[in-house]
């Protein structure tokens, strides 16, 4: 028995004294947030996401291995607005890490300073599907919102690691400038198609369409979280044909068959685009993600 205790204590000591490779170990609920955190944190931060970009952020299995992954994190960044409400209530307490529990300095809700769209008015009812009662949580599909997140992260990182606070502020400023420049390019690319209608699989494109002036004609899902049935697809396809809508967008984790079926019935085309970093191999960070989205849309709208 004594030897067993010694072995366990030995392991505990060995693994609890692992050297830190960065000043702040940051974990996030989404790859986009990890990407922004890495830009802002630079060499002082290692940022990793628990949810992969090709994974539906609504349905992340709350694996105990995720709890293990954040056992020693200094910071956890949640998407907020209940997007991660289906798994964080298990994973965060399960990490047994007091530094990142809600209310602690190391827990960041990245949505706090965002201008949230589609906040429900009046009674919230699940008759409308699996709606988000705090508003649409897919704010990270608007490049400008990521600037807000970057500034927010720089402030909190600076509070947690005052020695490098100036670096975080400078990095956030550089990120904002780079994003503003890129945004101008994306706006120019999509300007000819302002007002074009599209169909998306889920209501996760409203921030992007608002930013770039696209019109959301409908969704492949009849209601959020509810899979489409053949009758709904036929009705939607007929409406698309009547309105001349040709483009259907879906994410890697949605049912590609349903999106393609709808596009075929509507005599249009379905395109797989990532709304999250890592959704496709080319979307390596937040900039290349928007590059991919914009170039796919230009191709879809121009027919080239």
């Amino acid at each position: 028995m004594k030897s067993l205790v010694k072995i366990l204590l030995g392991f505990a000591l060995a693994f609890s004294t692992l050297p830190a490779f960065a000043d702040l170990k940051v974990a996030t609920a989404l790859e986009d947030l990890a990407s922004v955190a890495q830009f802002v944190g630079g060499k002082h931060v290692t940022a990793t996401s628990l949810c992969k970009g090709y994974q539906d952020p609504h349905f992340v299995p709350a694996k105990p291995s995720l709890m293990k992954a954040i056992q020693n994190a200094d910071v956890f960044i949640s998407v907020g607005l209940e997007l991660d409400g289906g798994w964080l209530p298990l994973v965060i307490p399960g990490s047994r890490n007091p530094k990142i529990q809600p209310g602690a300095k190391g827990f960041i809700d990245a949505s706090e300073e965002i201008n949230v769209l589609e906040k429900p008015v009046g009674t919230v009812s699940r008759a409308e599907g699996d709606i988000h009662p705090l508003g649409n949580p897919h704010y990270y599909v608007d490049p400008a919102n990521l600037e807000v997140v970057a500034d927010h992260l720089a402030r909190v990182f600076g509070e947690l690691d005052p020695t490098n606070a100036d670096d975080y502020t400078a990095n956030a400023k550089a990120f904002d400038e780079k994003m503003e420049k890129a945004l101008k390019g994306w706006e120019a690319d999509l300007k000819p198609y302002k007002g074009t209608s599209i169909v998306v699989y889920h209501e996760n494109f409203v921030y992007f369409s608002t930013r770039f002036g696209l019109k959301l004609f409908g969704t492949v899902e009849p209601k959020p979280g509810i899979p489409p049935n053949p009758r709904y697809l036929t009705e939607t396809a007929e409406a698309m044909k009547a309105a001349g809508v040709k483009v259907v967008l879906y994410q890697p984790y949605y049912d590609a068959d349903a999106a393609q079926q709808l596009a075929k019935k509507a005599e249009g085309t379905a395109y797989e685009i990532p709304t999250e970093v890592g959704g496709v191999p080319k979307a390596k960070d937040v900039f290349s993600k928007f590059d991919f989205i914009v170039s796919t849309l230009v191709k879809a709208f121009s027919g080239k």
């Binding site: 505990a12 609890s16 105990p64 709890m67 056992q71």
Partner: peptide, 12 residues
């Protein structure tokens, strides 16, 4: 009391 041990895998 549930202790998450410091082993490299999830061991509680």
């Amino acid at each position: 009391a549930a202790w998450m041990t410091p082993l490299p895998w999830y061991c509680e």
